[in-house]
Simulated assay, not measured.
Amino acid sequence: MPTDASTDATVLLRLDEADELAAAWVCALAERRGIRALLIKGPALHLHGLREERVSADVDLLVEPARFEELCEAIVGSGWRERPSLLISKLTTVHSKTYLRDGWPCDLDVHSFYPGFLADPADVFEALWRHRWVLSLAHRDCLALDKTAGALVLALHSLRGATIQPRHLDELEQLVRAPFTDDERAELAALARETGCVATLESVLPRLGVEVEPTAAERAAPELRYWRERVTAGSHGSYFWMLALRKSRWRDRPRLLWRAFWPTRRDLLVARPEAVDTIRGRTRARLARWGRGIRSAPAGARAVWTHRRGVSP
């Protein structure tokens, strides 16, 4: 049926379509401003033979750290908005910001650095930038990670969630079964050492046939302890509150403990949008949250206790 030219048309994007268009768009946005950015994960991993093809719920972009905020401001200025975050996320997630937009089924996840790389974020980006690879998306050339760099990022990503999420464990197993040449193994060893992920991937690199020793700086990095705790704890929420409390000032700890015990209405509804927004509904949601916290607390405490002596000498 003919429609008036002024009538707004609604186009429903499939997730795979949205992923490709959003990736091409954000890469073009960065390029126009002269900001270096690299797509991480996504379809490049399948094209490199590192994991099976699948559609992601978000587009991951690594940005040169010095211009991270500039690109984030440009994304907001283009009509995207930052995803509402919880207090615990603000306290423990400092490496990325997530953006969403009405009508788009995917998110933009923009990173200033990637967890698990223990070298200086600027140095890590320069090393990964040398391993950039051209990927065509939505009829546009974008910059992604090559096979070597992609394998390290996938290993770090999968290892963090492998303890409680079968998909991440499965992707890790796919990675270790992927074929690598001797030259590629040598590149993996060199890049892992340069970016400081030899110790964080100590359980993965040998399975890839990569024998390499971490540098003294990597062994001494305080972040190594937190990484090992995070991997041991999985994604259990109790651990993140333990981490936030440990990093906070003493005078702030009573407030944090209260917020862990009794989240604000906003935090509760952001975390559990299915909760009924009434006094009774919010109380039920909080009680359910206590149950999950009690069940996950042993895993968090065990992670802290296991790595209490810190990093290796």
Rank of each mutant, 00 (worst) to 15 (best):
G209I: 10
M242K: 00
R230H: 13
T215S: 05
R230C: 12
F240C: 01
R207C: 02
E211N: 10
G234S: 06
P206S: 08
M242F: 12
T215A: 02
Y226W: 15
A216N: 03
W241D: 01
P222N: 04
R219M: 15
R219D: 08
L201Y: 09
V210Q: 01
V210K: 02
A220R: 03
L201V: 07
E229Y: 07
S235F: 15
A220E: 07
A217R: 05
P214K: 05
R219N: 11
L201E: 08
R228W: 07
L224F: 01
Y239S: 02
S203I: 13
A221D: 14
L208Q: 04
V212H: 04
A217W: 05
G209Q: 13
H236D: 08
V210P: 07
P214V: 06
L201I: 02
A233M: 11
T215I: 00
M242D: 00
H236F: 07
A216Y: 00
E213H: 10
P222G: 05
L205G: 14
F240R: 07
L201S: 12
T215F: 04
A233D: 04
V231C: 09
R207H: 08
E202R: 15
P206R: 06
W227P: 05
W241L: 00
H236E: 10
E211R: 13
A233C: 04
A221H: 15
M242I: 07
M242Y: 09
S203M: 13
L201W: 10
Y226T: 15
T215Y: 05
Y239G: 03
A217T: 08
L205C: 12
A233K: 02
V204T: 05
A216D: 13
S235N: 12
S238I: 00
R225F: 15
G237S: 11
G209V: 12
H236V: 11
R230K: 08
E218M: 02
G237K: 07
L224K: 00
L208T: 00
W227A: 06
L224S: 01
T215E: 06
V231H: 05
R230F: 13
R225K: 06
H236Q: 12
W227D: 00
P206V: 09
R228G: 01
P222E: 07
R225L: 13
A217E: 14
S238T: 02
R230D: 11
F240I: 00
L224R: 01
G209T: 09
P222A: 06
G234K: 03
A217D: 14
V210C: 04
P214T: 06
L208M: 13
V212R: 00
E211I: 14
A220F: 08
A233F: 08
V212D: 01
R207K: 13
S203D: 15
E229F: 09
M242E: 00
A233P: 12
Y239F: 14
A216T: 11
A217P: 03
G237W: 07
P206M: 08
A216E: 14
V231F: 12
E213Y: 07
H236T: 04
E218G: 04
R207Y: 06
S235L: 14
S235D: 15
V212G: 05
